[in-house]
Amino acid sequence: MNFELLIQLLVNGLIVGLLYGVIAMCFVLVYKSTQIVNFAQGEFLLVGAWVCWAFLVYMELPFFVGFLLTLAFMAAFGVLLQMIVLRPMIGEPIISVIMITIGLSIFFQALMKWIFGVDPQSYPQVFDTQSVQIMGLNVEVAYLMSTAIALFIMAAFYFFFKHSKHGLAMRATAFDQQVAQSLGISVKHVFAMSWGIAATVSATAGVVIGLVNGVSDSLSIMGIKVFPAVILGGLDSIVGAIVGGITIGILENLAEFFDSQYFHVGNMYDIAPFYVLLIILWFKPYGLFGTQDIERI
């Protein structure tokens, strides 16, 4: 058994898992506050990564300036998307709204291809050294940054929802919209804010992944990949999203390890999470932390 490879893969799994957790959190955030299953989640990453790439390559801005501009752009993007496309759909059947998010997903994938072409592009060199040795493990600097960013975002989410007025308002809206309104909370603003936050945070993940793997269509697949994470954690639990994300990240890499060492099936990396998804739905349809919909009749 190749322990070095196993540990390397586990560390990779943890790092990628944290990013999955962040993306899953955005998904849960939108689902919780607006009851919309956002199939365009992956496109937030894609659009964010391309916009940042454009800032860096076309306008030749320094990385952090371009990155911050991207975040600002994506916040506006999320809010406008909600206001223009989704707000008129409030009160319509939920299935129609889901179809709209699928439409948005296709639209933005095509739009990005139209603007930036179909070839994958890589970011300009951001860090001087590609990778560092930590305790004998080869860790890419971009991964270190991604871990730091992921942990920062999670801490920020915690403080936002626990201590800030707007975070509390969003939780109140998720709990009961009528009560929220009776407290003076504008549900419209909360919806817009949740889409804005989801887009901004997803874009961060998109840029980070883009730094490592380059920007291409495959980023949008992330939006599908977080489904197992979200379902494992429970659709409406932020903590569950993080736990689910890390679990799926590690599982993927374990699958990769056992495949490359023993089974030699190939492609286990991509498929394993979805097997897990199936098994979870069998035994725990509400996920680990999800609210079980029990109604007293």
């Binding site: 509390l168 709990f175 407290l183």
Partner: peptide, 19 residues
């Protein structure tokens, strides 16, 4: 009553002061 059941009392009170 319609309090927010998954929050603490203090969080509920803070929400009252939202405006």
């Amino acid at each position: 009553r319609r309090i927010i059941e998954d929050m603490t009392s203090i969080e509920n009170l803070k929400l009252g002061a939202y405006t």
